[in-house]
Design a protein around this nucleic acid. Structure first.
Length: 341
DNA sequence: GGTCCACAGGAAGCCTTGGAGT
DNA sequence: ACTCCAAGGCTTCCTGTGGACC
C-alpha cells in the first residue's frame, strides 16, 4: 500500500464521522423534530442502507437537553433480548450488569431507574433483533413507563413494521413512521464531494472519479469506503481510472467493515459465495454454498441449520441478495447472488 | 395422482456460562 | 463449594413447499 499523501485529515472519510450539515435531509429532520415536540412517543425510521438514518438521529439526540437519558442500541451487535437489555441497563445506570441474570430482573431495574427520568431508546438495525426474540422485547419496552420512555426503531429492511410485529406489540408502540428515500446520483456526488473537500488535499480528486463512484453506488457508506481506499492507494491525484482499479479492493474493505462484529463463520460463508460466483457465475444454490463452506472451514464447522441463519445475517447486511423458492422445479431453496458496488 | 427435488425454518433439547442462593 | 436457574449458541429432527415429471 502507498502512503496517504493525498489525505490531509482521514476523519471525514470514516463512515462513522458525522458532518456538521446534511445534504437533502431537512424534511426528515423537520419531521423528527415535530414528532418529538408534539410529545408523540415512538418513531420508526426506515430506508435503504447508507441513506443517513442513523446519522440524522444521532445528530438529533446530541441536540436534546441533557436531562433526557438516551440509549443507543446497535442491534447487529446486540441481537438478543438479553444483550439489548444489558446495553440499556448500562446506559441508564452507568454500571455493567454482567451476564447470568434473568431478563425480568434487568427489566425491573430499568423500569425503576426510568420512572422519573425522560428516556429515549434507539434500536438501530432492528431486523437483527427481530430475527431473534425482538418482538417480545419491544412489547415489554413499550409497556415500560410509557409516559417517560420513547422508542426509536431504525430499519433498512422493513418498510411496514405492522407486518413484522405481533398485533399487540404494534398497537402498543403505535410509532410515527418516517421513510428515507435513496439518494440520487447527484445527491451522492454532493455528499461525497463535501467529505472529500474536508479530508483530501486540494486538487487531488478528479471530478470524473467522484462522478463514477456516485453513479455506481448511492449507498454513502459504500461510496466513502471506496473513496478512502482509492485515496490510500493514490500518490498524487484520484482519477476515474484509479477509482476503477480499486473497485474490487474497496468492496472487500466494505465487506470486512460490515462483518467486523460477526463470526469467522460469517466471513467464510461470504468467501464461499464469492469463490463460487467467480467459478460458476450467479446465482448459486444454498446447498453448493454449504458444501464450499465445509471445505473452507476444514474443522469446527457449524451445522447447515446454523449456517442458514448466518446466511440470513448476510442478507440483512445487504452483502448478498436472495431469491426464495418455496418448492417447485428447484425444490425449496434460496438462489444467492452477492451484491457489489 | 404419486413422487421427487433441495432445502427452509420451527421445535425441542443439549451444552456452556455466569450470577444468586444456600 | 455446591446447586439452581436462565440465556444464548448450537445441533438434531422433522414437516412443509409447489411445480416438474412419470
Amino acid at each position: 500500500m502507498k502512503n496517504d499523501s493525498v489525505i490531509d485529515d482521514p476523519a471525514p472519510l470514516q463512515t462513522s464521522y458525522r458532518p456538521s450539515s446534511f445534504v437533502d435531509r431537512e424534511s426528515e429532520r423537520e419531521q423528527i423534530n415535530q414528532i418529538q415536540e408534539n410529545q408523540l412517543r415512538n418513531l420508526f425510521l426506515h430506508g435503504p442502507r447508507g441513506t443517513g438514518k442513523t446519522h440524522l438521529l444521532l445528530d438529533h439526540i446530541e441536540k436534546l437537553p441533557s436531562s433526557i437519558n438516551t440509549c443507543y442500541i446497535p442491534c447487529r451487535r446486540c441481537s438478543t433480548q438479553y444483550q439489548a437489555l444489558k446495553q440499556i441497563y448500562q446506559s441508564v445506570t452507568g454500571e455493567n450488569p454482567g451476564d447470568g441474570h434473568h431478563t425480568a430482573k434487568l427489566q425491573r431495574e430499568i423500569q425503576d431507574r426510568t420512572t422519573d427520568v425522560e428516556t429515549l431508546i434507539v434500536l438501530d438495525d432492528v431486523d437483527f433483533l427481530l430475527s431473534n426474540d425482538g418482538d417480545s422485547l419491544l412489547y415489554k419496552l413499550s409497556r415500560t413507563n410509557p409516559e417517560n420512555l420513547s422508542i426509536v426503531i431504525i430499519s433498512s429492511q422493513t418498510t411496514d413494521l405492522s407486518q413484522r410485529l405481533e398485533e399487540r406489540t404494534y398497537s402498543s408502540l403505535q410509532p410515527s413512521r418516517i421513510g428515507f428515500e435513496p439518494y440520487s446520483a447527484g445527491e451522492t456526488y454532493q455528499v461525497l464531494g463535501k467529505r472529500a473537500r474536508d479530508s483530501l488535499k486540494p486538487e487531488t480528486l478528479h471530478r470524473n472519479a467522484l462522478t463514477y463512484i456516485a453513479s455506481t453506488t448511492q449507498n454513502i457508506s459504500k461510496g466513502l469506503t471506496w473513496l478512502k481506499t482509492s485515496a490510500k492507494n493514490t500518490e498524487d491525484r484520484i482519477t476515474e481510472e484509479s477509482v476503477r482499479q480499486t473497485q474490487r479492493q474497496a468492496y472487500q474493505d466494505y465487506v470486512s467493515q460490515q462483518l467486523r462484529y460477526f463470526t469467522q463463520h460469517h466471513r467464510l460463508l461470504h468467501q464461499a459465495i464469492e469463490e463460487l460466483e467467480e467459478e460458476h457465475g450467479t446465482p448459486i444454490n444454498t446447498g453448493k454454498i454449504y458444501d464450499r463452506y465445509q471445505e473452507l472451514c476444514k474443522s469446527e464447522s457449524v451445522s447447515n441449520r446454523r449456517l442458514s441463519d448466518f446466511l440470513k445475517d448476510l442478507e440483512l447486511l445487504d452483502l448478498v441478495e436472495a431469491k426464495y423458492h418455496y418448492g417447485g422445479r428447484k425444490g425449496k431453496t434460496r438462489e444467492i447472488k452477492s451484491s457489489s458496488f
